[in-house]
Every structure is written in structure tokens, then in C-alpha cells.
């Protein structure tokens, strides 16, 4: 039931226009961060305020919304955001990746390949990939203008010199369309290859940091690496304990206080679908 007293999808129309203008410029300049006037939302920073504002600005009554938190549809954050949009926009929600037209995500890309008629909205805590190397915004803006990304190459090289490999398992920096260095948000490096030439439009919203950026469909997204140390996505060397998948990204779950643990798919919809089809096959 739609809550009375709010504009459709919570934000007022002037705010939506401002965000929509930022999104269109973000699409026209793939990977470039665009400042926007992020509004105070009815949940704290860090809970996806940027992603919610992007979703609110693109959402229409015909959309079907899926929200995931670390791949799971049934976590507090994902459920709260789905409920929020059910209340303020009356849109249909789903846990199925295939049925969704908009997927808002915190820190994962669904295992099922996204289609042209879908949009994925990432919640981003820190949009500036150079932030830990150069905290001054004015300076990072200049580095992006000059496409001067030596700092990040040195950072990755230092990992190799010290540890023998690039020790970045998430938020692994990417080059978009050969021009802008971009933070993929804290998705596991395992998910980075899915961004490359994805059929769906990818939008990124950072609420606290007040930045929006985007990757249009079929755009080159390369994880930064070296010829002699090529990018390698990392995956736990196990099969999912529930569905047996050896291809999906796994979460390690501690099951007791005696060292018991299991590995299960992080993408709950993918895992559930595989279990259901396995059960069906067994029944037949």
C-alpha cells in the first residue's frame, strides 16, 4: 500500500531532476564522478542513501525492484530498502534476478548475467579510488583530469614487491573505457569481470560523498594489473555446501564455536534456484 503524504518515490521533483541531470552526464562520461546535492534520507549514511536516491530518481510504477546486500535478498538492509520503496512508490519487489528491472546492490553483482532491459544500481561508500593515496579532493580531481594514475600502479606494485601478489580482494580499481580510474564499490574482485561489457546499464550512487557515476552498457572495464602479474579474480576453493556450485562467489559461515564452518553461495537467489532445480530433477 502506498503511504500517503509523500511524493512518488519519496524525493521531491526538483531533487529528482537534479539527480537525473547528473545521471545523464555520468552516462555520457563513463567512470567520471559527478557531484550532486545528496539529500538527507530516512536512514543513516552507510545504509545505501546514494543508491536509494539513484533508484528513486529512475524508478517508475512499472518497475520490479530487487535489492541485495552482499548477494543476499533476506538481510536487514535489503528488506528495509525494498519495504521503503513499496511504501513510498508502491512498486513490485522481487528476490529473483531474472524478474527484476532494477537491481539495487550493496557489494555484489548477481551471478546471473544481467540483460539489456535491466539497470543495476550500486551503493557506494567511497567513490574516489585514489582516496587512500591522496585524500585531497582538489588534487584527485586534477589527477583524473590528467588521467595520471601512477599512484595506484605504485600501490599495486608495492603489494607485489612485499607479498608477491596484488592483495586487494575487494574494491579492486578498474579503468573504464580506457580513460577514468574508477572504484567498482566494495564488490569482491571476483565480480569485476562481470562489469566488462555488461549488457545492463550500471549506475553508482554515493550518498555521504555526494557523487554519482555510471558505466553505459557494453563498455570496456579493465581491472588494473601488470603484464607479468595479470588480474586474477579470487574465489574460495570449495563447492557451495547447499547447491554444490563451483563457479559462484562463496561466503564462509561459522557454524559453531568448535571451528565448524561451511562455504555457501553469497547470491541467495542463484543458490535457491540451483537447489530448486536439483530437487526437481531428483523428483523426476
Amino acid at each position: 500500500m502506498i503511504e500517503q503524504g509523500y511524493n512518488f518515490a519519496y524525493l521531491d521533483e526538483a531533487t529528482k531532476r537534479m539527480i537525473r541531470r547528473a545521471i545523464l552526464k555520468a552516462v555520457a562520461i563513463p567512470g567520471h564522478q559527478i557531484p550532486f546535492g545528496a539529500r538527507e534520507m530516512p536512514l543513516p549514511y552507510g545504509w545505501g542513501t546514494g543508491g536509494i536516491q539513484v533508484t528513486a530518481s529512475i524508478l517508475g510504477p512499472a518497475d520490479v525492484l530487487k535489492v541485495i546486500d552482499q548477494g543476499a535478498d533476506d538481510t536487514t538492509n535489503a528488506i528495509s530498502i525494498r519495504r521503503f520503496f513499496t511504501r513510498v512508490a508502491g512498486v513490485a519487489t522481487t528476490e529473483s534476478t531474472a524478474e527484476a528491472t532494477i537491481v539495487q546492490t550493496r557489494h555484489r553483482i548477481p551471478e546471473r548475467a544481467l540483460r539489456e532491459d535491466q539497470v543495476i544500481v550500486y551503493q557506494v561508500p567511497q567513490p574516489e579510488p585514489l582516496f587512500k593515496l591522496e585524500p585531497r579532493r582538489a588534487e584527485t580531481e586534477r589527477l583524473h583530469a590528467l588521467a595520471d594514475y601512477g599512484l595506484m600502479h605504485v600501490r599495486l606494485y608495492e603489494d607485489i614487491a612485499r607479498l608477491g601478489h596484488i592483495a586487494k580482494a575487494y574494491d579492486y580499481p578498474v579503468m573504464v573505457n580506457g580513460r577514468y580510474l574508477m572504484s567498482p564499490s566494495p564488490i569482491p574482485a571476483f565480480d569485476n569481470p562481470k562489469m566488462h561489457r555488461m549488457a545492463a546499464l550500471q549506475l553508482f550512487g554515493a550518498g555521504r560523498e555526494k557523487r554519482i557515476y555510471a558505466i553505459p552498457p557494453y563498455t570496456d572495464v579493465r581491472s588494473l594489473d601488470f603484464e607479468d602479474h595479470p588480474f586474477r579474480p579470487i574465489r574460495a576453493p570449495h563447492a557451495c555446501a547447499l547447491c554444490g556450485s563451483t563457479e559462484s562467489y562463496l561466503d564462509e559461515v561459522v557454524t559453531d564455536d568448535a571451528g565448524g564452518r561451511m562455504f555457501v553461495c553469497s547470491d541467495t537467489d542463484y543458490c535457491g534456484e540451483r537447489q530448486a532445480s536439483a530437487a526437481q530433477e531428483a523428483a523426476e
Binding site: 511524493n7 512518488f8 529528482k16 552516462v27 555520457a28 529512475i58 517508475g60 546499464l201 553505459p216
Partner: peptide, 20 residues
């Protein structure tokens, strides 16, 4: 309908801008 018509038009423009 200023709200929903603007939303529909924006999605059309977004689609056009995303797929030149």
C-alpha cells in the same frame, strides 16, 4: 501527470543516452 510523465520521459532519455 508531472511526476509519472517526467519519470517515463527520463527513462526514455536515459535509454537513448545509454544506447546511442
Amino acid at each position: 501527470d508531472p511526476v509519472l510523465d517526467a519519470q517515463a520521459c527520463f527513462r526514455a532519455v536515459l535509454e537513448a543516452m545509454s544506447r546511442p
